Amino acid sequence: MEKVDWHKNHIDDSTLITDSYKTTQNVRRYFKSKYGDNFKFNRDFMLWMKSATGLTMGDAWQEWVKRKNSK
């Protein structure tokens, strides 16, 4: 699996979540571009992201929406 620099690389829906995943401002910008300024990380979602190796950021976005809508 190709290493991603989570601080610098362009992130889009097809970006693979790697075992080097980090919650960075760049990742936050990606999610805010999808949902707007109301996007917030929470502990459960951050843990999910750490275990999502091999999925895409588009998959992560869908998971976040699913969690947001279930509240």
Rank of each mutant, 00 (worst) to 15 (best):
D13W: 03
G36N: 04
R29Q: 12
Q62V: 10
K8T: 15
S51H: 04
G54V: 11
F31L: 07
M57L: 14
M57K: 01
K40E: 14
T24P: 00
D44P: 00
M46K: 14
T18M: 06
Q25E: 13
R29S: 09
Y35M: 06
S51Y: 02
T23A: 05
N9F: 11
L16E: 14
D37E: 12
Q62D: 12
K40F: 10
R29I: 14
D59S: 07
F41K: 03
T56K: 00
S33P: 00
N9Q: 13
S14F: 10
W48V: 10
M57N: 02
N26G: 02
Y35S: 02
M46D: 13
F31V: 14
D44G: 01
L16N: 05
M46V: 14
G36L: 03
N26W: 07
W61E: 09
D12S: 14
T53I: 15
M57A: 01
T23S: 03
A52G: 01
F45D: 13
E63D: 13
N38K: 04
H10S: 11
D12A: 10
K22N: 03
G36E: 10
R29A: 10
L16F: 09
Q25H: 08
D44W: 03
G36F: 01
T15A: 04
W48H: 09
G54N: 04
T23E: 13
L47G: 00
Y35I: 12
D59T: 14
G36C: 04
G58N: 03
G36W: 05
L55K: 12
F31G: 04
D37W: 04
S14C: 02
K8M: 08
G54M: 06
K34W: 04
Q25W: 11
I11N: 06
M46T: 14
T18Q: 11
G54I: 13
I17W: 11
I17V: 15
L55H: 07
